[in-house]
Simulated scan of single mutants.
Amino acid sequence: MAFVQKHLIVHGYVQGVGYRGSMAQAAEVLGVHGWVRNRRNGTVEALAVGDAPAVDALVDWARRGPPEARVERVEVVEMTEPAQAAAGFMQRETL
């Protein structure tokens, strides 16, 4: 399986609705490593690292989000530089 790294910026009503925690749970189930955090501009930013099918499944989840979220769009950039992602998937502080 191919190993990929994708950087996501999620736009819409995605803060204060459990988005980060729900994404972390989805990532753990899928075996994806990385992190998620709120941004001061109202978006949610994430880094997903793992097998391509698992990361793609997390990107698909990000386009829906938890039930309370209203995702407008997700910017996805596949990264070629090695990312710094610890084992597991963590919620980071707002940037």
Rank of each mutant, 00 (worst) to 15 (best):
V55Y: 08
E45M: 13
R20K: 11
Q84G: 05
E75F: 06
F89Y: 10
A57W: 09
R63W: 03
G16A: 00
M90Y: 05
L95V: 14
V32A: 09
E81F: 05
W61A: 03
V17L: 01
L8Y: 02
A62I: 03
L58W: 01
H33I: 12
V10I: 15
Y13K: 15
E75N: 06
A87C: 02
A86L: 05
M90Q: 12
V29C: 12
A83W: 00
H11T: 07
M79N: 04
D56K: 08
A83M: 04
L8E: 03
I9M: 10
Y19H: 09
F89R: 04
Q84W: 02
M1I: 15
L8G: 01
E78F: 06
D56Y: 08
R39L: 03
V44Y: 00
A48W: 07
W61S: 04
M79L: 14
N38C: 14
G50K: 09
P66L: 09
L30Q: 03
E93Y: 11
L95T: 15
A87K: 03
Q25V: 15
A69D: 14
N38T: 11
E93D: 07
T80H: 13
G12S: 10
Q84L: 03
T80I: 07
G42I: 08
L30R: 12
E75R: 08
G50F: 06
T43Y: 11
N38H: 11
A83D: 03
Y13Q: 15
R40V: 03
A26K: 08
R92A: 05
P53R: 04
L58I: 01
E28H: 01
G34M: 07
M23V: 05
Q25G: 14
R70M: 05
P53K: 09
V4G: 00
H11E: 12
G18M: 11
M1Q: 01
Q5N: 13
T94L: 07
G34S: 10
V59Q: 00
W61N: 09
E28R: 02
G18W: 14
P66Q: 11
V59M: 00
V29W: 15
R70V: 08
V17Q: 01
G12P: 04
G34Q: 04
E45Q: 13
G34W: 02
H11N: 10
T94G: 07
G88Q: 12
A2K: 08
E45N: 13
F3G: 05
E28I: 06
A26P: 06
G50N: 13
V59D: 03
R92S: 02
T94K: 14
H7S: 04
G50H: 10
L58R: 00
T80G: 06
P53I: 10
V29Q: 15
I9S: 05
L95M: 12
A46W: 04
G12E: 09
G21W: 14
E81A: 08
R39W: 03
A54P: 11
A87D: 06
V36F: 09
A27I: 01
R73Q: 11
A26H: 04
W35R: 01
A24N: 07
A86S: 05
V49Q: 02
A24H: 01
G31M: 14
D60P: 12
M23T: 09
K6R: 14
A85C: 10
G18E: 15
G12Y: 09
E28G: 07
I9G: 11
A27T: 05
L47E: 11
R70T: 02
D60L: 14
